[in-house]
Design a protein around this nucleic acid. Structure first.
Lengths: 109, 109
DNA sequence: AGTACATGCCAATGAACATTAGCAGGTGCC
DNA sequence: GGCACCTGCTAATGTTCATTGGCATGTACT
Protein backbone atom coordinates (compact mmCIF):
# COMPACT_ATOMS: atom_id res chain seq x y z
CA UNK A 1 0.00 0.00 0.00
CA UNK A 2 2.42 2.58 1.17
CA UNK A 3 5.33 2.55 -1.20
CA UNK A 4 8.02 4.74 0.32
CA UNK A 5 6.63 4.85 3.86
CA UNK A 6 6.47 1.47 5.54
CA UNK A 7 7.34 2.48 9.08
CA UNK A 8 6.06 5.47 11.00
CA UNK A 9 9.45 7.10 11.05
CA UNK A 10 9.72 6.76 7.31
CA UNK A 11 6.33 8.35 6.89
CA UNK A 12 7.46 11.30 8.97
CA UNK A 13 10.60 11.64 6.90
CA UNK A 14 8.72 11.55 3.60
CA UNK A 15 6.18 14.11 4.76
CA UNK A 16 8.87 16.38 6.16
CA UNK A 17 10.74 16.13 2.90
CA UNK A 18 7.70 16.99 0.83
CA UNK A 19 6.71 19.94 2.98
CA UNK A 20 9.04 22.30 1.17
CA UNK A 21 8.17 24.42 -1.85
CA UNK A 22 11.68 24.02 -3.19
CA UNK A 23 11.61 20.29 -3.03
CA UNK A 24 8.16 20.14 -4.56
CA UNK A 25 9.47 22.17 -7.48
CA UNK A 26 12.40 19.83 -7.83
CA UNK A 27 10.06 16.89 -8.05
CA UNK A 28 7.89 18.68 -10.55
CA UNK A 29 10.95 19.45 -12.64
CA UNK A 30 12.17 15.86 -12.50
CA UNK A 31 8.74 14.64 -13.52
CA UNK A 32 9.67 15.84 -17.00
CA UNK A 33 12.64 13.51 -17.09
CA UNK A 34 16.03 12.99 -15.51
CA UNK A 35 18.45 15.84 -15.22
CA UNK A 36 21.82 16.70 -13.76
CA UNK A 37 22.45 19.07 -10.92
CA UNK A 38 23.89 22.15 -12.57
CA UNK A 39 21.32 22.23 -15.30
CA UNK A 40 18.50 21.64 -12.89
CA UNK A 41 19.75 24.48 -10.73
CA UNK A 42 19.74 26.81 -13.71
CA UNK A 43 16.25 25.80 -14.73
CA UNK A 44 14.89 26.28 -11.23
CA UNK A 45 16.76 29.50 -10.71
CA UNK A 46 18.36 28.47 -7.43
CA UNK A 47 21.96 28.04 -6.38
CA UNK A 48 23.66 24.73 -6.96
CA UNK A 49 24.65 24.36 -3.33
CA UNK A 50 21.07 24.82 -2.23
CA UNK A 51 19.77 22.37 -4.77
CA UNK A 52 22.27 19.76 -3.67
CA UNK A 53 21.02 19.92 -0.11
CA UNK A 54 17.45 19.43 -1.20
CA UNK A 55 18.35 16.62 -3.56
CA UNK A 56 20.10 14.79 -0.77
CA UNK A 57 17.03 14.98 1.39
CA UNK A 58 14.83 13.82 -1.41
CA UNK A 59 17.13 10.90 -1.98
CA UNK A 60 17.29 10.10 1.72
CA UNK A 61 13.52 9.91 1.73
CA UNK A 62 13.60 7.60 -1.26
CA UNK A 63 11.76 9.99 -3.54
CA UNK A 64 14.52 10.36 -6.10
CA UNK A 65 17.52 8.33 -7.14
CA UNK A 66 20.86 9.37 -8.55
CA UNK A 67 23.53 7.94 -10.79
CA UNK A 68 26.91 9.43 -11.46
CA UNK A 69 27.79 9.17 -15.12
CA UNK A 70 30.76 10.12 -17.19
CA UNK A 71 29.77 12.08 -20.24
CA UNK A 72 31.55 11.39 -23.52
CA UNK A 73 33.80 14.36 -22.89
CA UNK A 74 34.81 12.86 -19.59
CA UNK A 75 32.85 15.27 -17.47
CA UNK A 76 31.27 13.88 -14.34
CA UNK A 77 27.53 14.35 -14.44
CA UNK A 78 25.26 13.47 -11.57
CA UNK A 79 21.86 12.61 -12.86
CA UNK A 80 18.79 12.60 -10.68
CA UNK A 81 15.67 10.72 -11.48
CA UNK A 82 12.19 10.77 -10.02
CA UNK A 83 11.12 7.65 -8.20
CA UNK A 84 7.53 6.64 -8.46
CA UNK A 85 5.70 6.89 -5.13
CA UNK A 86 2.18 6.81 -3.80
CA UNK A 87 1.01 7.52 -0.30
CA UNK A 88 -2.64 7.63 0.58
CA UNK A 89 -2.76 10.03 3.49
CA UNK A 90 -5.70 9.28 5.76
CA UNK A 91 -6.39 8.96 9.49
CA UNK A 92 -6.22 5.19 9.05
CA UNK A 93 -2.72 5.36 7.63
CA UNK A 94 -1.65 7.53 10.53
CA UNK A 95 -3.23 5.19 13.01
CA UNK A 96 -1.06 2.46 11.58
CA UNK A 97 2.07 4.56 11.37
CA UNK A 98 1.92 5.67 14.98
CA UNK A 99 2.37 2.09 16.13
CA UNK A 100 5.81 1.88 14.58
CA UNK A 101 7.02 5.24 15.81
CA UNK A 102 10.34 5.55 17.50
CA UNK A 103 9.69 7.70 20.52
CA UNK A 104 13.16 9.13 20.48
CA UNK A 105 13.32 12.56 21.96
CA UNK A 106 15.78 13.56 19.33
CA UNK A 107 13.60 13.27 16.29
CA UNK A 108 10.59 15.11 17.54
CA UNK A 109 10.55 18.49 15.93
CA UNK B 1 -9.96 15.46 -5.25
CA UNK B 2 -7.75 16.86 -2.61
CA UNK B 3 -9.81 17.48 0.46
CA UNK B 4 -7.74 19.61 2.78
CA UNK B 5 -5.12 20.64 0.24
CA UNK B 6 -6.53 22.55 -2.69
CA UNK B 7 -3.69 24.99 -3.31
CA UNK B 8 0.00 24.25 -3.29
CA UNK B 9 0.56 26.30 -0.18
CA UNK B 10 -2.13 24.37 1.63
CA UNK B 11 -0.54 21.11 0.62
CA UNK B 12 2.75 22.29 2.05
CA UNK B 13 1.06 23.29 5.28
CA UNK B 14 -0.72 19.97 5.64
CA UNK B 15 2.42 17.98 5.00
CA UNK B 16 4.47 20.12 7.36
CA UNK B 17 1.83 19.66 10.00
CA UNK B 18 1.77 15.91 9.59
CA UNK B 19 5.53 15.52 9.66
CA UNK B 20 5.66 15.48 13.43
CA UNK B 21 5.46 12.39 15.63
CA UNK B 22 3.61 14.34 18.29
CA UNK B 23 0.96 15.53 15.94
CA UNK B 24 0.57 12.10 14.42
CA UNK B 25 -0.05 10.73 17.88
CA UNK B 26 -2.60 13.41 18.53
CA UNK B 27 -4.45 12.46 15.39
CA UNK B 28 -4.29 8.81 16.32
CA UNK B 29 -5.67 9.62 19.74
CA UNK B 30 -8.49 11.70 18.32
CA UNK B 31 -9.36 8.92 15.92
CA UNK B 32 -10.85 7.21 18.93
CA UNK B 33 -13.26 10.05 19.50
CA UNK B 34 -13.31 13.68 20.55
CA UNK B 35 -11.51 14.78 23.64
CA UNK B 36 -10.62 17.89 25.59
CA UNK B 37 -7.17 19.33 25.98
CA UNK B 38 -6.22 18.48 29.54
CA UNK B 39 -7.40 14.92 29.30
CA UNK B 40 -5.72 14.43 25.97
CA UNK B 41 -2.47 15.76 27.39
CA UNK B 42 -2.66 13.27 30.24
CA UNK B 43 -3.34 10.39 27.93
CA UNK B 44 -0.49 11.30 25.63
CA UNK B 45 1.87 12.02 28.50
CA UNK B 46 2.87 15.45 27.29
CA UNK B 47 2.46 18.89 28.80
CA UNK B 48 -0.70 20.84 28.19
CA UNK B 49 1.16 23.83 26.80
CA UNK B 50 2.91 21.68 24.26
CA UNK B 51 -0.26 19.95 23.23
CA UNK B 52 -1.99 23.26 22.71
CA UNK B 53 0.64 24.39 20.28
CA UNK B 54 0.32 21.22 18.25
CA UNK B 55 -3.46 21.36 18.31
CA UNK B 56 -3.39 24.88 16.96
CA UNK B 57 -1.24 23.82 14.06
CA UNK B 58 -3.45 20.87 13.34
CA UNK B 59 -6.46 23.15 13.35
CA UNK B 60 -4.73 25.71 11.15
CA UNK B 61 -4.09 22.95 8.64
CA UNK B 62 -7.73 21.95 8.78
CA UNK B 63 -7.03 18.50 10.17
CA UNK B 64 -8.96 18.91 13.39
CA UNK B 65 -11.72 21.18 14.61
CA UNK B 66 -12.54 22.50 18.03
CA UNK B 67 -15.55 23.62 19.97
CA UNK B 68 -15.57 25.30 23.33
CA UNK B 69 -18.27 23.86 25.53
CA UNK B 70 -19.49 24.58 29.00
CA UNK B 71 -19.80 21.44 31.04
CA UNK B 72 -22.78 21.05 33.36
CA UNK B 73 -20.67 22.22 36.25
CA UNK B 74 -19.85 25.38 34.35
CA UNK B 75 -16.30 24.41 33.54
CA UNK B 76 -15.01 25.49 30.18
CA UNK B 77 -13.94 22.50 28.16
CA UNK B 78 -12.30 22.75 24.76
CA UNK B 79 -13.09 19.71 22.73
CA UNK B 80 -11.09 18.72 19.70
CA UNK B 81 -12.34 16.49 17.00
CA UNK B 82 -10.68 14.76 14.09
CA UNK B 83 -11.63 16.01 10.69
CA UNK B 84 -11.84 13.48 7.91
CA UNK B 85 -9.16 14.01 5.25
CA UNK B 86 -7.68 12.19 2.31
CA UNK B 87 -4.67 13.19 0.25
CA UNK B 88 -3.30 10.94 -2.43
CA UNK B 89 0.35 11.83 -2.53
CA UNK B 90 1.82 11.23 -5.98
CA UNK B 91 4.09 13.01 -8.44
CA UNK B 92 0.97 14.04 -10.34
CA UNK B 93 -0.51 15.75 -7.30
CA UNK B 94 2.73 17.59 -6.77
CA UNK B 95 2.90 18.63 -10.39
CA UNK B 96 -0.48 20.23 -9.90
CA UNK B 97 0.33 21.78 -6.56
CA UNK B 98 3.48 23.46 -7.78
CA UNK B 99 1.45 25.59 -10.17
CA UNK B 100 -0.36 27.29 -7.32
CA UNK B 101 2.67 27.87 -5.18
CA UNK B 102 3.32 31.26 -3.68
CA UNK B 103 6.98 31.88 -4.28
CA UNK B 104 7.33 33.97 -1.17
CA UNK B 105 10.78 33.95 0.25
CA UNK B 106 9.41 33.86 3.72
CA UNK B 107 7.71 30.51 3.70
CA UNK B 108 10.45 28.47 2.20
CA UNK B 109 12.03 26.43 4.90
C1' DA C 1 47.59 29.66 -19.05
C1' DG C 2 42.89 30.95 -19.02
C1' DT C 3 38.00 30.02 -19.61
C1' DA C 4 33.96 27.18 -19.15
C1' DC C 5 31.61 23.54 -17.46
C1' DA C 6 30.89 19.70 -14.15
C1' DT C 7 31.24 17.88 -9.08
C1' DG C 8 31.71 18.11 -3.82
C1' DC C 9 32.17 20.06 0.71
C1' DC C 10 32.07 23.36 4.72
C1' DA C 11 31.76 27.36 7.64
C1' DA C 12 28.80 31.21 8.87
C1' DT C 13 24.68 33.65 8.94
C1' DG C 14 19.86 34.36 10.20
C1' DA C 15 15.41 32.55 10.72
C1' DA C 16 12.13 29.25 12.36
C1' DC C 17 10.98 25.71 15.41
C1' DA C 18 10.00 22.70 19.86
C1' DT C 19 9.67 22.71 24.55
C1' DT C 20 9.34 24.31 29.28
C1' DA C 21 7.96 27.03 33.16
C1' DG C 22 5.16 30.39 34.87
C1' DC C 23 1.49 33.50 35.05
C1' DA C 24 -3.36 34.83 34.54
C1' DG C 25 -8.38 33.79 34.44
C1' DG C 26 -12.60 30.87 35.53
C1' DT C 27 -15.83 27.24 38.10
C1' DG C 28 -17.23 23.97 41.87
C1' DC C 29 -16.59 21.59 46.26
C1' DC C 30 -14.95 20.56 51.21
C1' DG D 1 -9.95 30.07 52.29
C1' DG D 2 -7.81 26.21 49.95
C1' DC D 3 -7.85 22.54 46.62
C1' DA D 4 -8.87 20.52 42.18
C1' DC D 5 -10.16 20.98 37.90
C1' DC D 6 -10.60 23.63 33.33
C1' DT D 7 -8.78 27.38 29.92
C1' DG D 8 -5.40 30.77 27.73
C1' DC D 9 -1.08 33.30 27.03
C1' DT D 10 4.02 34.54 26.91
C1' DA D 11 8.89 34.91 27.67
C1' DA D 12 13.05 32.23 27.56
C1' DT D 13 15.69 28.34 26.36
C1' DG D 14 18.09 25.28 23.21
C1' DT D 15 18.07 23.18 18.86
C1' DT D 16 17.38 22.49 14.29
C1' DC D 17 16.92 24.27 9.61
C1' DA D 18 17.62 27.08 5.10
C1' DT D 19 20.61 29.63 2.47
C1' DT D 20 24.82 31.76 0.86
C1' DG D 21 29.62 32.16 -0.51
C1' DG D 22 33.86 30.27 -1.02
C1' DC D 23 37.18 26.81 -2.05
C1' DA D 24 38.90 22.53 -3.99
C1' DT D 25 38.58 18.86 -7.49
C1' DG D 26 38.26 17.33 -12.33
C1' DT D 27 37.86 17.48 -17.74
C1' DA D 28 37.94 19.76 -22.41
C1' DC D 29 38.73 23.68 -25.66
C1' DT D 30 41.16 27.85 -27.45
Amino acid sequence: MSDPAPTGDDLVRVLATLSSPHRLRVIAALAGGRNYVSRLARELGISRALLQVHLKKLEAAGLVSSQLELSEEGKAMKYYELRRFSVHLTPELILDAVRTLTTEKGSER
